[in-house]
Amino acid sequence: MIAKKRYAAPFILWIIAGTVIPLISIAYYGFTSRDGSFTFANIAAMFRHDHMQALGLSLLLAFISTLICLIIAFPMAMVLRESKYGKQGFLIFVIILPMWMNFLLRTMAWQVLLERQGVINSLLGLFGLPRQEMMNTPGAIVLGMVYDFLPFMILPIYNTVSKIDNHLIEAAYDLGATKLGTYTKIILPLSVPGIVSGITMVFIPALTTFVISNMLGGGKINLIGNIIEQEFTVNSNWYLGSGLSLVMMVFIILSMLLLRKFDKTGGENLI
């Protein structure tokens, strides 16, 4: 036997030190008050008006961004599926390439484009059009999210769509299915695993981001990620920050369970 159980020892130690104990610490701080006694206050703090507002806005913006990504990505995956093999490889390459650029730089690019003295406004100026206030709006944040996360939606959907057997689609047509019928009865159901993992890979980072909202929202629009980040970096209230993180984790787990219901393969297409 090449396999010996003890080879897994470093990995198990790493899980304990890097995953289990850190998660226990976050739970510990989340249920502890500043004076060290047990409390639910940090969890209940989510119901404070400003926190609820931030959570609501995060859910809304993440939902909109995910939906836009899905609407853009599905046709893109279909177009990719139908293009020639060599061209397909090239197009995939072109979609992956921006993912390799640091996402802070990519978000900064939109700041440069959207700012009051930025590129789009000076182009508008050339045509004698009035300057637009595009930065520091929820729209700018959604744009940044879609831009940063779009490849994460296209690739998993493309992965499943490209594996759909052409014969199935031809059979559907032969049996008299309409175009719409083929899409809703054959292509869409078969691409569900890709769609589900695409949604997970876009929705969760969008829900929890504080970087995009900070850079494109100018610090004026608070998402739940910003609130938590500020508790740790500005207010130094780890207890409250941990409590809010725990609540956010519940939202992540809930959305994953919900998504998994649609995907019968059990998330094997996650990467």
Partner: peptide, 17 residues
């Protein structure tokens, strides 16, 4: 867990550790 969890939670958890 680290793959599915949000990065911000993983980061904070490690920091607290």
């Amino acid at each position: 867990i680290p793959m599915l969890n949000a990065d911000i939670v993983t980061g904070i958890a490690l920091m607290l550790f």
